[in-house]
Amino acid sequence: MPVLPSAVSVKNLDNILALCLQNDRIAQEKLYRAFFGLFYTVARDYTTDNESLLAIINEAFLKIFLHLKDYDTSKGSFETWSKRILRNQCIDHYRKQKNAIAAIEINDSVSNHIQHNDSQPGNSRDTAYYFSLLPETTGKVCRLFFLEGYAHKEIAAELHITESTSRWHVSEGKKRLQEILKRKYA
């Protein structure tokens, strides 16, 4: 049984979704509030800019409300369906921004400014932070591969790159993360 955010029971969720299909604004707000925290956490892995983050979440909710009639309970939970829409929205946002973003290389001057904390590696906040230190495309590929479980073929299709480029970014990301973590925990 899926764990629903913000104390929304399965029965309540079904009622809220039924009302959302009728364009009930109060039900839409309840759904938005119930899933905002989850969406924020998921989208945070794709962007560090709060303005973009909120825009992505709002656009994802708009798509959810517009396509709610297409949701089929026999194919999976609402949470899974909605998170897929959110991830696709994050990837679309990335594609739009791809040409404007210059890859930032991590060098010694950047690594000297890294804020060190005493938390243990593996913390989800640490994971997002370390992925944010990678060049933009490498970070996105690594997030999709390691955190979301995408295959190289899926990553290639989503980001419009080749499978070999996806493999290279994962390999490069591993090397850079190892260097960063060695410096931090050595």
Rank of each mutant, 00 (worst) to 15 (best):
Y71G: 01
L66R: 05
P121M: 13
S6I: 05
D45N: 15
L38D: 02
E51P: 08
L68H: 03
A156G: 02
T73V: 13
A151E: 10
A18L: 05
E148C: 14
E105M: 12
N12K: 10
K11M: 06
T165E: 02
H67A: 11
L17V: 00
L31Y: 09
D49I: 12
T137W: 00
R167T: 04
I180S: 03
L134I: 00
D92M: 10
R183S: 08
K63H: 01
E59S: 09
H160L: 09
N99V: 10
K174A: 04
L181R: 10
T137E: 04
I106W: 00
G37S: 06
T73A: 15
P5G: 02
A156W: 01
N58D: 14
R44T: 07
Y32F: 09
R33F: 12
L21G: 14
R95I: 10
H152N: 15
A100Y: 07
F78R: 02
D126G: 05
K63P: 00
R44F: 05
L147H: 09
W168C: 13
K30H: 15
Y71S: 02
S9F: 08
D14M: 02
T165C: 05
S82N: 04
Y185V: 07
D49E: 14
L134P: 03
S74R: 14
S119E: 10
I155E: 03
N99M: 13
G149W: 05
Y94W: 04
V141K: 03
L66E: 04
L38S: 07
K184S: 01
F35H: 02
Y40H: 11
K96P: 10
Y46N: 03
R95D: 08
S52H: 10
I114V: 07
L38M: 07
T127R: 12
S109L: 12
A34V: 06
S52E: 15
A18N: 08
N112E: 14
N117L: 15
G37F: 02
D14K: 05
K96N: 11
L31T: 08
A27N: 07
Q120D: 01
E179K: 09
R143Q: 11
L86E: 08
N23I: 09
N88C: 01
G122D: 08
Q120K: 00
E154C: 12
Q22M: 13
R84F: 01
S166K: 01
H67I: 08
T80R: 06
Y71I: 02
V170T: 03
K175Q: 06
F78S: 05
D45M: 14
A34Q: 11
F36P: 06
A186S: 12
N107A: 04
C142M: 06
W168F: 15
W81N: 04
R167E: 02
Q97L: 13
V42F: 08
R33P: 11
K96S: 15
K184R: 07
V3P: 02
L181C: 14
L21D: 12
Q115M: 11
T138I: 07
Y94M: 04
T138N: 08
R87H: 05
I91M: 03
P121C: 10
Y94E: 01
A103E: 09
E148H: 13
V170P: 01
E154T: 15
H169T: 00
Y32P: 06
L54M: 12
Q22L: 14
L53P: 05
V8K: 09
R167L: 06
H67Y: 09
T48G: 12
Q120M: 00
W168R: 14
I114L: 00
I104F: 00
T127A: 10
